[in-house]
Write a protein that binds this DNA or RNA. Structure first.
Length: 471
RNA sequence: GCCCCCAUCGUCUAGCGGCCGAGGACACCACCCUUUCAAGGUGGCGGCACGGGUUCGAAUCCCGUUGGGGGUGCCA
């Protein structure tokens, strides 16, 4: 096996974090670019948190991002739990060599000692007590004296004085392995050469590097990319922030837009463009160019990217992408009234007016509803204009015999009627729009009327005229 | 507290000692276009955290201050 081996090692939590998505993408871009391998490993050490369907969710989310398991670059998924024996065996080896020792202090006792000593963390109490294994005893790593230098592809060399690294736990009191150990054993077993992850892992790195060496392996190349933060500049959290990739997907963010946006958080392509195809990102991405400070995950900018991507879609693709949103259970019209041809005609006009696909139904709902849902405020506003009721009535009469029934003719006719009442087209169209669509804003009116048809248009205009003016 | 990381417009960034009187994008504002709303076009607002060095020359290098962030579990 030649070529670098990158890995993405999420723990299954029930949803896919956007920060994880970015990390996965970075790993993927590099693996592809360098003819290497992208290893997916599910870190299911903490059995209580693990559910099988969550793994499917991870694979699904990755596929949506363009990281497909059937791509030759992709390897896995592996499961950390499957290597549990190796974790314990490695711990045993460390113990046999004197690189680890058992300790019978409970977490409470450790805390008490720390408090008494005025220094936080474990104080190495059992280092030389020569304890053997036993129930409730944890196995701790014996951190050697000296300094550990972590070579990081984005930060350079980071030094840690070993005496600031406490003797961390390898095996819990019940004998199960901890993250730090399992993670390293797996990486060694899988021949990982490059560990690229979020910055929150940087403080773990000297410990893991020590473990690699203690286990007789040469540490990988490390890279720690800055975390994504919210408007408060805090790490994105599940509780306060919208972090589930699945949610963005459901709201109609395009995968390409999400991928492009995520890749440009902390990194930028050459030149003054940021909307660039994946092929270019894959070719140009370089860890040396990744920013060192946390990046704000800006919904507004994501939305802007998404709008760009939606508008760039060929109309047919746009129509296809809209389908799930037009046939959803929550659609605001009786499903049997939906007309694909009507939507297809309106599609190009809708395309420039939405930022996410989820906004599409609300743009065209009036075309498929039995009656428009009239917004009272909109009605009052449009009909309150002097001459509006008259324009509405006259337009209804005029449209009854209009020939041909085309957007152009509809517009010209209304323009004439409006002018007769001293109203410019912008004002004159308002009452018609509210009467037919229920709102003051929406896709271009005359095009909508054309596809709605004469009968339905007249029915709605007459209904509205009968409703009278706002009191 | 201790360890580590970081610091260019509100935000994402370009910049890697002279090309910077700091460029682009999002957001915001104005105007144009216009059947509403968008889209599009044009223009505008707005920044090198601060203080010391180094240098002929610093946004770029060094130190300090301040300010942010991450970590500090028998979580991952």
């Amino acid at each position: 096996m030649t070529g670098p081996r990158y890995r993405f090692a999420p723990s299954p939590t029930g949803f896919f974090h956007v920060g994880g998505a970015r990390t996965a993408l970075y790993n993927w871009a590099l693996a592809k670019q360098q003819g290497g391998t992208f290893v997916l490993r599910i870190e299911d050490t903490d059995e209580a948190r693990n559910r099988p369907e969550w793994t499917e969710g991870i694979i699904d989310a990755l596929a949506w991002l363009g990281i497909h398991r059937d791509d030759p670059t992709f390897e896995g998924p592996y499961f950390q739990s499957a290597l549990a024996d190796q974790h314990v065996a490695a711990a045993q080896r460390l113990y046999d060599r004197g690189s680890a020792y058992y300790c019978d202090l409970t977490p409470e006792q450790v805390q008490e000692r720390a408090k008494a000593a005025g220094k936080p963390g474990y104080d190495g109490y059992s280092r030389d007590r020569g304890l053997g294994p036993g129930p409730g005893r944890v196995l701790r790593f014996r951190v050697p004296p000296g300094t550990t230098v972590v070579g990081d592809a984005v930060r350079g060399e980071v030094e840690f004085a070993n005496d600031t690294l406490e003797d961390f736990v390898l095996l819990r009191g019940n004998g199960t392995p901890m993250f730090l150990l399992a993670n390293v054993v797996d990486d060694i077993a899988m021949g990982i050469t490059h560990v690229l992850r979020a910055e929150e892992h940087l403080p773990n790195t000297p410990k893991q590097q020590l473990l690699w060496r203690a286990l007789g392996a040469e540490p990988p190349a490390w890279a720690h990319v800055p975390v994504l933060v919210n408007e408060q500049r805090k790490k994105l959290s599940k509780r306060r922030d919208k972090v589930a990739l699945e949610q963005y997907r459901a709201e109609g963010y395009l995968a390409e837009a999400m991928v492009n946006y995520l890749m440009t958080l902390g990194w930028s392509p050459r030149g003054d463009r940021e909307i660039v195809p994946w092929s270019q990102i894959e070719a140009e991405f370089d860890l040396a160019d990744v920013n060192h400070s946390p990046a704000f995950f800006d919904l507004k900018k994501l939305a802007a990217f998404n709008g760009e991507y939606i508008r760039a879609l060929p109309v047919d693709d746009f129509v296809a992408a809209c389908q799930p949103y037009l046939h959803d259970d929550g659609v605001p019209w009786p499903p049997e009234r939906y007309r694909p041809a009507v939507f297809a005609q309106m599609a190009p006009l809708v395309q420039t007016r939405v930022v996410t696909l989820a906004e599409v139904p609300a743009m065209v709902d009036f075309l498929f509803q039995a009656d428009p849902v009239v917004d009272p405020a909109a009605w009052t506003k449009a009909m309150g204009v002097a001459g509006a009721p008259a324009v509405l009535a006259e337009t209804a009469r005029c449209y009854a015999t209009l020939d041909p029934w085309s957007a152009e003719a509809l517009k010209d006719a209304l323009d004439r009627i409006g002018t007769a009442h001293g109203l410019k087209l912008g004002k004159a169209q308002a009452p018609i729009r509210v009467a037919v669509t229920g709102r003051t804003v929406g896709p271009p009116l005359f095009e909508a009327l054309e596809v709605l048809g004469r009968d339905e248009t007249l029915r709605r205009l007459t209904d509205a005229a009968g409703r009278g003016t706002p009191g």
